[in-house]
Simulated scan of single mutants.
Amino acid sequence: MNVVLSLGSNLGRRFQTLQGAIDTLFDAPGLSFVAASPVYETDPVGGPAGQRPFLNAIVVAETTLQPRALLERAQSVENAFGRERKERWGPRTLDIDLITVGGTISDDPDLTLPHPLAHERAFVLVPWSEVDPAGVLPGQGQVADLLTDLDQSGVRLREDLKLQRPD
């Protein structure tokens, strides 16, 4: 199955955390790296005022894991990088969201697929469109089409940062 993951960080060594998360996610069987988007610096969406900007990227992969197992792996990697869940949309060392997992549709409150807010988030759709121009968000449409209605002013390309394939 094809999977799209959104990675973000606005605490600590943001870029090193994103790269470390990629290396750690793919350090076990069941998940194969396909591509990583360019890195974008983005204004925080929601949450408390005064947060530091995020670094965001999209990772496309292939997986043999079931969605629940993939979520558990993502949360384990978040925890390994010091993720604390204190307040919704608050600052965080690492956030890994499952955007799509194949064509899986899930209404489970712990794992809603596709991600229920992805179609509203330029910090997801802009990098996704870079790494997968033909990308489709199930139930919403082509990523490129979804971008036409979004304000992209808070999403800035960081040409000085490039994520590497996992070791």
Rank of each mutant, 00 (worst) to 15 (best):
L98Y: 05
D167M: 05
S32K: 08
T148D: 14
R165V: 12
D167H: 09
K86S: 14
A49P: 04
N79S: 14
V155S: 02
G141V: 00
T93F: 02
E120C: 11
V131S: 10
H119V: 13
G47S: 11
L113A: 03
A49C: 00
F33R: 08
A28C: 06
A28Q: 07
N79W: 12
P67H: 02
A35Q: 13
L146G: 14
Q152M: 06
D97H: 11
A80H: 13
W128G: 05
G141A: 07
T148S: 13
S32L: 06
V124P: 07
E120H: 12
L113H: 04
R165S: 12
R85D: 04
A69C: 12
D167I: 07
S6H: 09
P44N: 08
D149E: 13
P44F: 06
A49S: 03
F54L: 07
K162G: 08
V60P: 05
R13T: 13
R52M: 09
V4E: 04
L163Q: 04
D151K: 14
P166F: 01
A57I: 02
K86Y: 12
R92E: 02
P138D: 11
D27I: 00
R85F: 00
R14W: 08
E41K: 04
E72R: 11
N56G: 03
T64P: 02
G139W: 10
D97Y: 07
R14M: 06
P166M: 04
R165G: 10
I58K: 00
Q16P: 07
P67I: 06
T112V: 15
T24C: 01
D108V: 12
S129R: 09
S6Y: 00
L5A: 02
R13I: 01
Q66R: 15
N10G: 01
P53Y: 00
L146V: 15
P29M: 01
D97W: 04
N10T: 03
V136H: 10
T63W: 04
L161T: 08
I96T: 08
A69M: 11
R68M: 12
I22Y: 03
V143I: 13
E62L: 02
L150S: 09
A69F: 09
K86E: 15
V101G: 00
P114I: 09
A61W: 07
